[in-house]
């Protein structure tokens, strides 16, 4: 049975560089998948293909909720269902926190101003930033900015959330507050694909951990199995390297 997110033979080239070498992946509705792997292994490229921030070759196919992720009219539909959180937050600096969250519901869904504002305030409360609505992003700490970015993604009520190393740009003391929000989200039934170096998070929260190397999925297993009994040598070497310090 095809998954909620279905990736078939995903091939990605940057010029002549073969970044993704035929990835097949089925992700079920509500599943939380953590993607780990060394730098340059193609983790970002993989999740950026899911909402087609990266183009991919025609021999590949990605479906989200049975909708093909192709350029054109469908793409906006897919993107409205698929939220994304970036390593560098990418908040809109000229808008207040509340306006950042309201923008997409207003413009894409046509939500009224009052409804969008009320929803924004609700979401801000949910990520623990109820008092920050009037501020501009530059007035917030990194951890707060990333929580706003999560609230902004949630405002579209997405079925899928993609995270690309959401805590990698944060000072260590702020990593926890963002991971806590993500942990709560994982309980809500939203489908999550999380590229991360936080092995503790992957171990506790993921339903499945995927290890990528050289543009391929090397191993895919539930965290208990993945961390205690990895089958592949490359996975073992990677885990040794990251868990030893």
């Amino acid at each position: 049975m095809p998954g909620y997110i279905s990736i078939r033979n995903l091939q990605k080239y940057y010029g002549h560089y073969h970044a993704l070498r035929g990835i097949d992946l089925e992700i079920a509705r509500g599943e939380v998948v953590c993607v780990v792997g060394p730098s340059g292994s193609g983790k970002s490229t993989l999740i950026r293909c899911i909402n087609r921030l990266e183009d991919f070759s025609t021999e590949s196919a990605i479906h989200v909720d049975s909708v093909p992720v192709l350029p054109g009219a469908n793409l906006a539909k897919v993107r409205a269902e698929v939220g994304m959180v970036f390593q560098s937050f990418n908040l809109f600096p000229h808008l207040t926190v509340r306006q950042n969250i309201m923008l997409a519901p207003r413009r894409v869904r046509g939500t009224s101003k009052t409804a969008a504002a009320a929803q924004a305030d609700q979401l801000l409360a949910r990520v623990g930033l109820a008092s920050q609505a009037e501020k501009y992003p530059s007035g917030l700490s990194g951890g707060q900015q990333q929580r706003v970015a999560i609230a902004r993604a949630l405002a579209m009520e997405p079925q899928v959330l993609l995270f690309d190393e959401p805590t990698s740009a944060l000072d260590p003391e702020m990593v926890g507050e963002v991971l806590d929000v993500m942990r709560d989200l994982a309980q809500t039934g939203v489908t999550m694909v999380v590229v991360t170096h936080e092995m503790g998070f992957a171990r506790q929260v993921a339903d499945r951990v995927i290890f990528m190397d050289g543009g391929e999925v090397i191993e895919s297993a539930p965290p208990a199995e993945f961390f205690s009994a990895p089958r592949e040598t490359r996975t073992r070497n990677f885990l040794h390297a990251v868990l030893d310090h």
Binding site: N51, L53, R79, F86
Partner: peptide, 13 residues
């Protein structure tokens, strides 16, 4: 920055 275009695109704008 490119990230601004990407964030907007990812939101469905």
């Amino acid at each position: 920055p490119k990230g601004q275009f990407e964030a907007a695109a990812a939101l469905g704008l």
